[in-house]
């Protein structure tokens, strides 16, 4: 079936089986490889994208549901020239190690900051439940707080 949506601000139409997980449409049809496959079971969060501003695990999201929606991936997280505040904070705190899970974490964090501009440690514990095997959580927490600062200073 034909499915139309906006991805990172650009209209797209793809021809795919409507039940194909959105993840594979993003990665293999649109060749945006920043959204990762970790488990395919919505358990690790490596495939997190935004659908109409909400954090969604794209491995468990049938492509047909994307019809007419606005999708943002890590490649489109930054608008304008610079990096998104979350990416800036991730740079400042030197968060990534292997880096594979990081786009999912950054997308989840960006969604959190839209809803909770000044997250507490408890908010972070409750909302950010992705998995990082390098265990960069300690710096992520700092980076999330820092991202909130940057974002709030910008607005």
């Amino acid at each position: 079936m034909k499915i139309s949506f906006n991805i990172n601000g650009t209209p797209q139409e793809v021809d795919a089986d409507g039940n194909t997980p959105l993840l594979w449409v993003i990665r293999d049809v649109l060749d945006l490889k920043g959204t990762k496959f970790g488990c395919g079971k919505a358990a690790c969060g490596a495939c997190t994208v935004h659908v109409n501003g909400e954090a969604v695990r794209s491995c468990s999201y049938a492509a047909k549901f994307a019809e007419g929606k606005n999708i943002t991936t890590i490649e489109g997280l930054a608008t304008g020239d610079g990096l998104h505040p979350v990416q800036q904070a991730w740079m400042e705190e030197i968060v990534p190690q292997c880096g594979y899970c990081q786009p999912g974490f950054m997308m989840a964090t960006a969604a959190l900051l839209e809803k909770v501009p000044n997250p507490t440690d408890q908010d972070i514990d409750d909302n950010i439940v992705n998995i990082c095997r390098c265990a960069t959580y300690y710096r992520m927490r700092k980076a999330i707080h820092r991202a909130a600062e940057i974002k709030n200073a910008n607005t």
């Binding site: 920043g34 990762k36 930054a78 990096l83 990416q87 991730w90 990534p96 880096g99 786009p103 950054m106």
Partner: peptide, 8 residues
């Protein structure tokens, strides 16, 4: 790694 470059 912060922009999600296709490196893996």
């Amino acid at each position: 790694k912060v922009i999600g470059a296709p490196i893996f």
